[in-house]
Design a protein around this nucleic acid. Structure first.
Lengths: 334, 334
DNA sequence: CTGTTAGCGCATTCAC
DNA sequence: GTGAATGCGCTAACAG
């Protein structure tokens, strides 16, 4: 069995077998209404018998469009992204498009390489939580339509998950429990989300007249969260709001290892709501609609390529606090 | 700013600007060693100035190869797959290939559609935990090179994660703790892994002279695991081995909700080791090298397409038990 | 070493 | 309604 998959027939073979011209076969697939009912069905049946299927590559070269789009995320393994990918995937299906996936490993250079590799092979790319600097993003945007998720670059279409209201609610929630010194556990410095969350928390804390302290995790990961707790406890804070759920989960486990009960002796709140109630105790968190972000981004990309012009679009998704069991009364006040 | 990304120059423009033929420009990029140093650098500099970049689609049509490969998984959001995707991704990078991602949603028809959509646009496809029946898999394999992961179809190249030794060790582990009636919490019926695990457990139990019972979760998910505990407890078993870690985690949480301490009153062991120590208590599990599976599959696909022949390859990855804290002494024996 | 010629498989003007 | 001709952008013989 040598090269069994090479047996893909071309349009010419179908044309010959059906006794029509290649143009007719082509039209039978792309504009059936231009042909007589009979011709269409005859061509199609012959095509089916031969197992013919239009060559997408050739079609793309001819028409200039193939409907492929690229999605680049910092880390496939981070639970924040799968729902988003799934959302984009669903929309791509609806549009008959295929999705290229790239994982930059939180590395700007790798992300740069990926975009370059995809450009010319896709009709548009979606950059999620891009670690690229503005200049490089603009550079790429000049070569291929780009939609940003969780990155705020003026002039480019972007969908932003605005966690500020959720963060504010989280601070209120903690304040009502009597917490006065709260720590922000920061994520990647290059992350727009991180900057936005930090800023939102600072504002909320100031408004409440509370004292904000901060520690920084090296990376958005379970391990980073676990490693940060010594520093976290050192700040004297009685509660923490973490950059994301995964980091919060790391904190939860490290606290459990130290026999520090949550929320009795320490409260922690996460961000993104990607873990659901799978932690112990179930994590109180700021809910973000990451699946919707993926859907919207793909739709936007469709608009952008269809309109053949890059419009200034800033689509903002809001958030809210999901109260579960990881935040409670401040120890001193018990 | 109208269609700013349309300004991509073609090979002809570069050729003209550099005063050479199109073939020379082509060679400057694909086989520089065929040209004089000087010509190469001159062409490349002109190309760079014009912002030329070879059109991958045209190149693919001409050469018949584009180095794209497709990866189809049942559910991107299931933590089993991201590491695998990441492994494949890494290898694809090394090979200069781009990765198409498809998520079938555990649905055979959708998977079927996806494969068809990708075929003709990729050089090969990797099917992970395919839900397709053998006939359909073979059908597709006749049109495009296919490598299977966790699906055992004779004649097709496949990489299998053999959990039987790990399962056996898990049973031993539980037996040593005094458990005599152990429940297998099954996953998707169409899953090869599920069948394999069930069989391995049955064999191990029989060998030990223990009593095996079983319940079936609708789907491999946290919720399914949580919903199954009533039935699980109803079996009278004192321990459970779950189809995968996610299901096990659901069981853990449901048990916690019922104030049934793990492992004091009930022991649970997972499969895949995709959660690490993120659960409470940390999950004892059968470790599977899912990232390696992705790497191997991609390498295999490379071999297959390079050799232009589909060889019978059956690559088996083994597993072992990772002991953490979710299994312990049987209640009655305490 | 480099230019010339000829397609890759398809969609798309035009004629008929 | 359908066929013949042309080109998408590039690579691959074949010359020279």
């Amino acid at each position: 069995m040598d090269e069994p998959w090479r047996g893909v027939p071309t349009i010419s073979q179908v044309a010959q077998a059906a006794g029509v011209s290649r143009a007719t076969v082509s039209r039978a697939f792309t504009r059936p209404q231009m042909l007589s009912q009979e011709t269409v069905s005859r061509v199609k049946s012959v095509a089916a018998r031969l197992g013919y299927v239009p060559n997408q590559v050739a079609r793309a070269l001819s028409t200039g469009r193939h409907g492929n789009i690229a999605l680049i995320v910092p880390d496939v393994a981070n639970p924040f992204f799968p729902p988003l990918i799934r959302g984009a995937q669903a929309r791509a299906d609806l549009a008959g498009a295929c999705l290229f996936l790239g994982s930059s490993d939180e590395n700007a250079d790798r992300e740069d390489t990926l975009v370059a590799k995809f450009t010319g092979q896709v009709e548009g790319v979606i950059l999620v939580s891009s670690r690229l600097d503005e200049e490089r993003i603009r550079h790429h945007a000049g070569r291929v339509p780009i939609v940003l998720i969780n990155r705020d670059v003026t002039g480019l279409p972007r969908v932003l998950i605005d966690t500020s209201v959720g963060i504010s609610a989280a601070v209120d929630h903690l304040a009502e429990f009597g917490h006065r010194r709260i720590c922000y556990v920061a994520g990647p410095a290059a992350s727009w989300s991180n900057q936005q969350r930090r800023k939102a928390m600072r504002a909320a804390m100031r408004r409440r007249g509370l004292e904000m302290v901060a520690v920084t995790a090296q990376r958005a990961s379970f391990e980073a969260g676990r490693d940060i707790v010594a520093a976290l406890l050192g700040t004297g804070a009685t509660a923490a709001i973490a950059f994301d759920d995964v980091t919060a989960q790391g904190i939860l486990v490290a606290l459990a290892e130290r026999r520090i009960a949550v929320p009795e002796r320490f409260s922690v709140i996460g961000c993104d709501d990607v873990l659901g109630a799978t932690t112990f105790p179930p994590l109180t968190t700021v809910s973000a609609r990451c699946d919707e972000a993926g859907e919207v981004a793909l739709d936007l990309l469709g608009d952008v390529t269809r309109l053949k012009a890059m419009r200034e679009i800033r689509y903002v998704l809001d958030t809210h606090l999901v109260v579960r069991g990881s935040a409670g009364t401040v120890p001193a006040a018990r």
